[in-house]
Design a protein around this nucleic acid. Structure first.
Lengths: 114, 114
DNA sequence: TCAGTACCTTACAAAATTGTAGGTACTTGT
DNA sequence: ACAAGTACCTACAATTTTGTAAGGTACTGA
């Protein structure tokens, strides 16, 4: 993301950690149950491995997700939402509902305009 | 923004209309009272005129803001939030609160990591 | 030793977003 | 005539984000 939004209102930090194309989706997938790396890859087929790791690492650095390595064979890594991640996910719910309610109408408007 | 987030959850459309560096802030400024173009420019000093207009136009196309021209001299244009814009702003409040609560902690974490 | 799974990395390139610099049209004030 | 104010536009360039391709490790079973 380009730097930060001038945050007169608190949205700046939030967008900083959840902005971008994939993070919200990843958080969403991870917030109910721990997910393995390969599992996430399958659940988000359009993401490249690089992006997936990159986003996971950033979210880990921001304290949103927890990464746990199981020293097994084959190796096993699980990602789960931290309490902070959970709280962010909760804060995202109204926005998701808004999208569900108005998304279709907005899509339609765009199609007409084009 | 790059295309859309695969929206398994409704966040896709929401991010599509509010994503980017300035839109949330503009919506925030406009949602309480109508604002003139020049007024917004002063309230967001770091934005370029081009960006301001571009974002306003996109938000207008998405039905979030209403643009009203007063045929006066000097010309006068006012931007205000539509009901849809208001509803989006409401949906953004929890996220803003999250940012206010946890923003500082996240900043601190980043500083340590660097 | 070879193939196979799972996880991760790096170098490089494409695409999207944002910014800069200049310009328009109109009217008032000097 | 000319500067100043308001709202906007356009071409171009820098920055940021995302994607692609190609590895690389570690361990297992045949």
């Amino acid at each position: 993301m380009a730097k930060t939004q001038p945050d007169s209102c608190g949205l700046g930090p939030a967008f900083q950690v959840i902005g971008g194309k994939w993070k919200a989706l990843i958080l969403w997938l991870v917030h109910t149950e721990p997910r393995r790396f390969g599992e996430l890859k399958r659940l988000v087929p359009d993401i490249s491995e690089k992006m997936l790791i990159q986003q996971l690492r950033e979210m880990e650095a921001d304290g949103l997700v927890h990464r746990e390595v199981f020293h097994q064979v084959p190796p096993r890594v699980e990602y789960s939402a931290t309490p902070l991640g959970q709280s962010l996910d909760d804060a995202l719910v109204p926005l998701a509902n808004w999208g569900k309610q108005h998304g279709a109408a907005i899509e339609a408007r765009k199609t007409n305009a084009a």
